[in-house]
Design a protein around this nucleic acid. Structure first.
Lengths: 109, 109
DNA sequence: AATTATACCTTGCAATACAAGGTAATATTG
DNA sequence: CAATATTACCTTGTATTGCAAGGTATAATT
């Protein structure tokens, strides 16, 4: 059995939950900063995964982006924050996640 | 944002982990019994999800099925057990899962 | 003989993670 | 002052899975 394939699949959806919780914690954060933070936390997230996800969440009204040009950096950065709807969504997702943990405990006997 | 869509996606891969842990706990269990158990634990799993998954895991050498005809039931039942390779795989998966919990805690900070 | 109950299986669609490759703005170097 | 490097964001195509819907099979009951 291919564990790597499973690892890939188990990330689906979960990454979205991790991302929203991170943005909620940081209040405001930009793309590469997210990748750096998660890498240090032990999760390698590629740009090809992150950027389409940020775009989708923005279109869905979960995130609100803001372009910022800073002195410390070259290219402008796109900072993301949760919208009010995004905070509600995150709350529902965390609730659902807690339920999954309960199911998890029951199968672990 | 569509929470239901997220719920669907977040199940990917995770269901495989739950299933293998359940079979490990029960030692031997058949299809509809799995669905019943998980339903009581709060997780609705459809047959269209379960059976293809059991078939794949058998092909991959993770599970070993055994047909059993019992007095108490009409149609014969196909009982599944973990193979030795399956137990190793489950161990790796649970390890990886623990790492994800750690990442999770760091974003909830 | 027909119906019901239990149980397993298959097909086609929708959705996401990611490798690979691309674009853009600014800073640095020869 | 070009050329290169750095930082940052974006797009396309592929592989994989969850599941609704519909199907098949065995045995008991009516």
């Amino acid at each position: 059995m291919d564990i790597e394939k499973w690892k890939l699949q188990s990330r689906k959806g979960l990454i979205e939950l991790l991302l929203l919780n991170l943005i909620n914690q940081k209040k405001s954060i930009y793309g590469l900063e997210i990748i750096e933070f998660l890498a240090e936390a032990g999760l390698d997230l590629s740009e090809g995964t992150l950027y389409p996800l940020l775009t989708r969440l923005t279109k869905e009204g979960t995130l609100k982006p803001k372009w910022v040009t800073e002195n410390t950096s070259g290219h402008p950065r796109k900072y993301y924050e949760l919208t009010a709807a995004g905070k509600n969504a995150l709350h529902s997702m965390n609730d659902h996640w807690q339920q999954m943990i309960v199911v998890f405990d029951s199968v672990k006997g």
